[in-house]
Amino acid sequence: MTERSPEDFVSDTFDQAVESLVFASDVPLREEDVARCYSEVTGVEVSSEQVGHSVDRLNVSYQEGGRAFRIRRWAGGLRMATIDEVSAFPAALFEDDATRRLSKSLLETLSVIAYKQPVTRAEIDHVRGVGSDYAVRQLLERDFITISGRGEGVGRPLLYATTERFLDQFGLEATSDLPAPREIEELLADPAFNRERARLLADLASPSPNTEATNE
């Protein structure tokens, strides 16, 4: 039997290994972590660039096979996600999961933090026109925001910033991918863009002052 080279082994199994790792992970998986896991199991060194090429090949095969998912790049890693054409179905399955929905007040608070981070609670309150204690606590508990340090003002107020979970939930690779307000109409008009994600991003980009008397 002819001995197989490491290159043959990679070509035969690499794409399947990448697919299995991304599928098994419940958080966005970095390309370098995929490469590390493959090398640990097989003893064959691969690079993050090779992982990227594998993802591209897999997505081509998914498209050609009419599959309902692709491997997307967001929140600094790789994750399997349904295509826009069928995204309404899993959304309907989880529509009763309250942890997946954000109220208007939470979206307003999150939008201020996302676009002005790092930001103090006083600055959030100023933009919203209402106290944000409850909203900030809820966003901290849901891991959408985190305490990123202290400001230089009187009392060294806490500074808030968004987390990797925020990027993951909104399908972003980095906060720099947040759309400018003028881009929202273009996103909403694009039939290839997920409507629900566009709506959420529109809410983030256009926070309106909260006129309610409550802190919620």
Rank of each mutant, 00 (worst) to 15 (best):
E3A: 13
D15T: 11
Q16P: 02
A17Y: 12
E19T: 13
S25W: 02
S25I: 04
D26M: 06
P28Q: 08
L29R: 13
R30P: 12
R30E: 14
C37G: 07
Y38L: 00
S39F: 02
E40F: 01
E40R: 09
T42P: 02
G43P: 05
S48L: 09
D56K: 14
V60L: 13
Y62A: 10
Q63C: 01
E64A: 15
E64F: 05
G66I: 03
I71D: 03
G77N: 08
M80S: 12
A81M: 00
E85S: 13
P90E: 04
A98S: 14
R101M: 05
S103H: 07
K104G: 10
E108Y: 07
L110E: 10
S111K: 03
I113V: 15
A114D: 06
G131T: 11
S132Y: 02
Q138H: 05
D143T: 04
F144Y: 15
S148E: 13
R150H: 09
L159I: 08
A161M: 04
T162P: 02
T162Q: 02
F166P: 11
L167A: 10
D168S: 14
L172R: 06
S176V: 10
A180I: 11
R182F: 07
L187P: 09
D190L: 00
R197S: 03
T211G: 06
E212D: 15
E212F: 09
N215A: 05
